[in-house]
Simulated scan of single mutants.
Amino acid sequence: MKQQRYDVVIVGGGAAGLSGALTLARARRSVLVIDAGEPRNAPASHVHNYLGRESTPPGELLAIGRGEAAGYGGEIVEGRVASAERLPGEGEDESGFRVVLEGGSTVEARRLLVTTGLVDELPPVPGLAERWGREVLHCPYCHGREVADRPIGVLSTGPLAVHQALMWRQWSDDVTLFRHTGPEPTDEEYEQLAARGVAVVDGEVSGLEVADDRLAGVRLAGGRVVPREALVIQARFTARSAVLESLGLVPVAQEMGGEVIGTYIPTDPVGATEVAGVWAAGNVTRLTEQVIGAAAAGLMAAAAINGDLIAEDTRTAVEARRRG
């Protein structure tokens, strides 16, 4: 950190944070990105559906973004933020914030942008974590094309499993729904699965079969192995919200199809939180956002922050002029 106070400190150096940093640096703001180096998509081999960067490896995309932000004067440092607090001042939005890193060092900012993302909490089945992002998947738009026409399994742990199976059927005609711990499908759902040729296997899944460092099958508790080359799961999306919680913001549950799929921090359309001077963008606020959407959210939040700073700069200038 080259200075002790910045216009904006960004907590999190993924697509949303770096996009915000690029936008703010181009707006001639002093900006610092503090990145813990734990990108959610690190296990994935490529980023998809990012126009102009299709199939770019995640690490390469971040390296490009860091270089672009730094090229306009943005600073990026490695570190983990422990908490943030508002500094005392005459006006709530003019007082700024102190950001505290693990280890005790601090830095101050007029505004904060938090882009810490989320954590994918996987079902407790042995072997899932080791194959996560490779053959254990959750998003067909991220990975469907790469496993098209292969034998795909869907692990049921909640009421969304039938929806997942029918969705993934778009990419393969060999889809099997493993009942596992999920609810039994309704008669209407059984009819839908049968009409689309989706097999249903009863019994709990006890693990995965791997051969030559590739998923080969799904093992049931009774010992039977069903050959599969990909397994779809429903992860729980938990926002990395500790920094925002230290400022008094509370994560809320998000439901889909009657099931809680995770937690997020509410914001307005441009990322402003309920705490004046604090914005958030990316997966910490929108659990199902893809990389290109997170980058767009970072841009929108940065533009809103710059506008807010312009308003403050103008108020300060007017007050100074009136004082003569």
Rank of each mutant, 00 (worst) to 15 (best):
Met1Asp: 09
Asp7Tyr: 08
Val9Phe: 03
Ile10Asp: 00
Ala16Gly: 01
Ala25Pro: 11
Arg26Pro: 11
Val31Gln: 05
Pro39Ile: 11
Pro39Asp: 14
Pro39Met: 12
Ala44Lys: 10
Ser45Arg: 12
His46Gln: 13
Ser55Gly: 00
Gly59Asn: 05
Glu68Trp: 04
Glu68Asp: 15
Ala70Trp: 01
Gly74Asn: 06
Val99His: 07
Thr115Pro: 05
Gly117Arg: 02
Pro126Glu: 14
Gly127Phe: 15
Ala129Pro: 06
Trp132Thr: 07
Gly133Ile: 03
Arg134Cys: 08
Cys139Tyr: 06
Glu146Phe: 13
Asp149Arg: 08
Thr157Met: 10
Ala165Pro: 01
Met167Arg: 12
Trp168Ile: 10
Arg169Thr: 05
Gln170Cys: 01
Ser172Tyr: 06
Asp173Leu: 02
Thr176Lys: 10
Glu188Tyr: 09
Glu191Arg: 04
Val198Ile: 15
Val198Ala: 11
Glu204His: 12
Leu208Ser: 10
Ala211Cys: 11
Val225Phe: 11
Val226Ala: 05
Pro227Phe: 13
Arg228Ala: 13
Arg228Tyr: 06
Leu231Pro: 11
Val232Met: 01
Val232Asp: 09
Gln234Trp: 04
Ala235Leu: 03
Phe237Met: 14
Thr238Ser: 07
Ala242Glu: 15
Glu245Ser: 15
Glu245Ala: 13
Ser246Met: 12
Leu247Met: 09
Leu247Asn: 13
Leu247Gly: 15
Glu255Ile: 00
Met256Trp: 08
Glu259Ile: 00
Glu259Asn: 00
Gly271Met: 10
Ala276Gly: 12
Trp279Lys: 06
Ala311Pro: 13
Thr314Asp: 14
Arg315Leu: 13
Arg315Thr: 14
Ala317Leu: 14
